[in-house]
Simulated assay, not measured.
Amino acid sequence: MTLLDVPFADVRGDTLRWTLAPTPCTPLASRTVDLGSGLTVTLSVLGASHQVLVRRHDRPLLHETIACGIAEAAPLPE
């Protein structure tokens, strides 16, 4: 467990956006887990949101971001 010292930000769910496009974000904290066979998963906490990157041998397979302020992203799926 990691405690993060960050200021409170009031975020409404309807302001969050979702994208599978690579989106550069500065994380508050990240953790990478090696699943073997060259497969890794990185989970990054972006305040009230997150980013997940799945790689195989350092090649991106999946890049998902849910965050506020991503203009080209879609609203969260139902």
Rank of each mutant, 00 (worst) to 15 (best):
V11H: 00
S30C: 08
R59L: 02
Q51L: 01
L28P: 03
T42R: 03
L62M: 13
S44G: 11
T40I: 00
G69R: 10
V54M: 13
P27D: 14
D58W: 05
D14S: 08
T40E: 00
G69W: 02
L16I: 00
T26E: 09
E72K: 10
L20A: 15
R59Q: 05
L20M: 08
V52S: 05
L3R: 12
D58T: 13
V52T: 09
V11F: 02
C68Q: 08
I70N: 01
T26N: 13
R56S: 02
D14T: 02
L43P: 11
P77A: 00
Q51I: 05
D58L: 09
L62T: 04
T15Q: 07
A73W: 01
L62A: 10
A48H: 12
S37W: 09
T40N: 00
D14L: 07
R31G: 14
I70R: 08
L20R: 06
A67S: 08
A71K: 14
L43H: 14
A9R: 04
L16Y: 12
T2I: 06
L76N: 13
P27S: 11
V41M: 01
D58C: 06
T19G: 12
D5L: 09
L76Q: 15
T26D: 07
C68H: 10
L20Y: 01
V41P: 01
T23L: 03
L53M: 13
P27I: 01
P77D: 05
V41Q: 00
T26K: 12
T26F: 02
L76R: 06
P77M: 05
L62N: 06
S49G: 15
P77G: 07
S44C: 06
D58S: 15
T2P: 13
W18P: 09
A48L: 12
H50M: 15
L28W: 05
T42V: 07
H57N: 13
V52D: 13
D34N: 07
C25Y: 12
L61M: 09
V45F: 07
L53E: 05
Q51D: 10
A48D: 15
L46T: 07
E64C: 07
M1K: 15
R56V: 03
